[in-house]
Nucleic acid binder design. Structure first.
Lengths: 215, 215
DNA sequence: GGGCAGACTAAGCGCCCGCTCAGCTTCGGG
DNA sequence: CCCGAAGCTGAGCGGGCGCTTAGTCTGCCC
């Protein structure tokens, strides 16, 4: 497992790093509840219930409900950053690396939609210090994508009006997948990833040297 | 005021239709509070306080806190649909109409960011019946954009792999503006609208006959 | 000037929230 | 065989929530 392609949808449950087992079950329950109802509408009783425990058990493993969100956010952002970094640092043209970054990033947002939803949309529920830490990770994600686009512009592969706005737009496209994607729907995460990679290459003007698929 | 261009950022406060005055002040206060903290984290005491009233005053004009969100959502979605419809039904090529739709839709999401944030991200806080009504409006928005893209494909102006996915991606791009746009930031709503219209024309493969601006 | 309708407030009801604590069970080490 | 640590529970605390109610103030018609 070393390419971004392989990382985005590989493992069944990516919370193996969380121990002990009870802490992980609580965290997975919290991810599901936060994704379904939002942080503020989720109660600690609901989280504990989903994990098959009493409400008090939560406070043995986590100091507060916010600490749960903080942990989820940090692990999720680190995963997202790892995906983008792997794509950014592989060998190949800027076109190939951007397509790899977008398709694997989208695949993660689609395939692990519940996690991505919490990670991308519940940031404001964190307190100031925790939020600042997460915002810093998010800026690193932005920087990885912007770096690829800048290199494509420098090499003449891309034709872009405004690197800053285009970077934001590319990330918007990927992130918003977590808002609408439905695992029961007609598209698989792989298909959406491929479609979005094509759209992004068009946005950066890379179409000329990356022949479009037949229709 | 008859083009989509003019509608997106024209009036100062678009809540003139809400009467009496106290009901409008409460609604504007609710929009601000919901946009800042989210529906579930906002208290009725906060809304009433922002409107300069006691908590009980809210219940003279609205049955519940949810009715406030419902009213905001409906008016906001009607405004969004109006913007898209105006662009869709004007004269001109599919390219011109899509550029008009995207730039005015983005301008609205940027310029009226607080409203757009509530409209686009707080839908899940509504009960089933209210949500169903709003979802129907949202599908009409989707249909307007999809219509323009289908016409562009039929006329040969656009080259698109998957109309359904491209429509979704275009709307994602516009909607996500409400998540990140900052009125204090370096870009005006007009600038972002123009940049995004260019990006969307690239996504649909309209670049060839819509010469790109100089850089 | 009296009375009544509508807008608004002070006070508070009942509920459920995040979180705590005393006590129970389990289990590995001496 | 006992002990203490760790994991967990049942019961419940203080508080803030959405919302209600009894009553006050204002303005307008007669």
């Amino acid at each position: 497992m070393s390419t971004a392609e392989e990382m985005a949808g590989g493992e069944a449950e990516p919370w193996v790093e969380v121990t002990p087992d009870a802490a992980r079950r609580l965290l997975v329950a919290a991810v599901e509840a936060f994704a379904e109802r939002g942080y503020h509408a989720t109660t600690t009783r609901d989280i504990a219930g989903r994990a098959g425990m009493s409400p008090a058990a939560l406070y043995i493993h986590y100091k507060t409900k916010e600490e749960l969100l903080h942990r989820i956010s940090r692990i999720g952002h680190e995963k997202a950053l790892e995906i983008l970094r792997t794509a950014s640092r592989r060998e190949g043209s800027a076109t190939e690396r951007l397509a790899d970054a977008v398709s694997s990033f989208v695949r993660w947002h689609a395939g692990r939609r519940t996690t991505a939803r919490v990670v991308q949309y519940e940031l404001d529920a964190l307190g100031p210090e925790a939020r600042a830490e997460i915002v810093a990770l998010r800026r690193q994600c932005d920087a990885e994508v912007r770096g690829i686009i800048e290199e494509g512009v420098a090499s003449g592969e891309f034709d872009v009006l405004d690197v800053w706005a285009t970077t934001l737009a590319v990330l918007s496209l990927c992130i918003d997948v977590a808002r609408w994607f439905n695992i029961e729907g007609p598209r698989t995460p792989d298909e959406v990833g491929a479609l979005y990679a094509d759209l992004v290459l068009r946005m950066v003007g890379a179409g000329a040297r990356f022949p479009r698929a037949q229709r």
